[in-house]
């Protein structure tokens, strides 16, 4: 709880504009493309499986 109590501390941050302007241009790495692709693909495949399991084993 102590940790979560401190987590909510949010302070206004100044000069975010400079932070944004200084942001480096980084092309998407192959590993990032894989992360995005696998995540979406797994999401679509699991969608069908989880709906089937819900209806079959956990009817409401």
């Amino acid at each position: 709880m102590a940790e979560s109590g401190r987590r909510e501390e949010i302070h206004p941050v100044e000069r975010v504009g400079k932070e944004m302007a200084a942001m480096p241009q980084e092309p998407l790495l192959p590993v990032e493309k894989k992360l995005i692709g696998w995540s979406l693909m797994l999401g679509v495949v699991l969608l069908g499986i989880l709906i089937w399991v819900s209806l079959k084993f956990f009817p409401a």
Binding site: L35, L40, G43, L46, L47, L50
Partner: peptide, 13 residues
């Protein structure tokens, strides 16, 4: 199940 789906689709997009 809804959360598994949301994690995988939301975050990647």
């Amino acid at each position: 199940a809804a959360i598994v789906e949301a994690y995988l689709i939301y975050w990647a997009l």
